[in-house]
Simulated assay, not measured.
Amino acid sequence: MTEDQAFEQITAIVQRMLEDKGAKVATIDKNTELLGGAINIDSLDLAMLVRELEDVVGFDPFAEGFIEFRTVGELAKLYAK
């Protein structure tokens, strides 16, 4: 999966999460902060996002331990192979 494909997956998942919560669906770009930024997700939502990405991509970049990330683009890089 390329970084752009990972970004598209992340964007689709986050937008679906926001719709399910009845929250405003925000414009998401690679610089969008995942927590405390323009999108209304919390740490539980973020954990669910990471879990769903693992299912879609087929691997867990966090298997060896936590890797710090803040933005959608940084998360997409972790899932790019």
Rank of each mutant, 00 (worst) to 15 (best):
F59I: 00
D45L: 02
E19A: 14
I67A: 09
V14Y: 01
E54F: 02
T27D: 13
I41K: 02
A63E: 10
V14D: 04
I13G: 04
L18H: 06
T11C: 08
F66D: 14
V50F: 05
F62V: 00
Q15C: 10
F7L: 08
F66Y: 12
D42G: 12
M48S: 14
L46T: 08
G58E: 08
V72M: 03
V57D: 03
D29R: 05
I10A: 01
F7D: 01
Q9M: 12
E52I: 07
L78I: 05
D4F: 11
T32G: 04
F69P: 04
Q9D: 15
M48E: 12
E52H: 06
F59P: 00
I41V: 12
K77C: 03
A80R: 03
E74I: 05
V50E: 04
L78W: 07
L53H: 04
A63W: 09
E33R: 12
V14W: 00
L34I: 08
D4S: 11
D55S: 11
N40V: 10
I28N: 01
A80V: 05
F62E: 00
G73F: 04
T2P: 06
E68D: 14
A12N: 14
M17P: 01
F69N: 02
A6W: 04
E54Y: 03
Q9I: 12
L35V: 14
R16T: 13
K81S: 09
T32Q: 01
V72S: 02
E33N: 09
G58C: 10
M17I: 13
Q5K: 09
D4H: 15
F7I: 06
T11R: 11
D42Q: 07
F69Y: 08
D29T: 12
T27G: 08
V56F: 07
E3N: 06
S43M: 03
L75G: 01
D55T: 15
D29G: 13
Y79T: 02
